[in-house]
Amino acid sequence: MDVKVRLCCREEKREELERMLRAGGFTVSADGELVLSEENFFPDRFLVQNERGENVLLDREEIAMVESFNHDLIFHSRGEKFRLRERLYVIEGELPSDDFVRVNQSAIINRKKLVKIVPALGSRFELILEGGIRTSVSRTYYAEFKRRFGI
């Protein structure tokens, strides 16, 4: 059986790990469903599909928001949408928690791309990100969000 594995590690380790995996009968591929990731490693770029279905590399710093949609993730960046077949919690682990914050059950935002934050009644915050992307901090994540930024 051909098992595709996606490697998420530093470049200096990549070659050796790929060799070991191949020797074990695995196929290393960017679209692999199994992910082997290195602890405290955050990739600078993600291989995603644009709206025309082309594979492109998206810089982490360019991401404004990642939201889950069906079985896919939608990356919002520079007013465009990019798709990746992955789970939100997996990507959450691949994004540095200093900059990226989970704000509700289906979205992670880049705090540096935040343009406006509007407090709302009922323990919520409405967020507007670059490119006019709107989302909100849900009640579940409200307390953690406030604690995180000391507000």
Binding site: R111, K112, L114, V115, K116, I117, V118, P119, A120, L121, G122, S123, F125, F149, G150, I151
Partner: peptide, 29 residues
């Protein structure tokens, strides 16, 4: 207060500034 809070929160979140804990909008309302 909503306008003020909006500005203060934005600067704290984007620039990582720290300050006193402010009462929430719901509390004032």
């Amino acid at each position: 207060y909503r306008l003020l809070l909006s500005r203060v929160l934005l600067s704290r979140i984007r620039d990582g500034k720290r300050g006193v804990k402010l009462p929430s909008y719901t509390t004032v309302f």
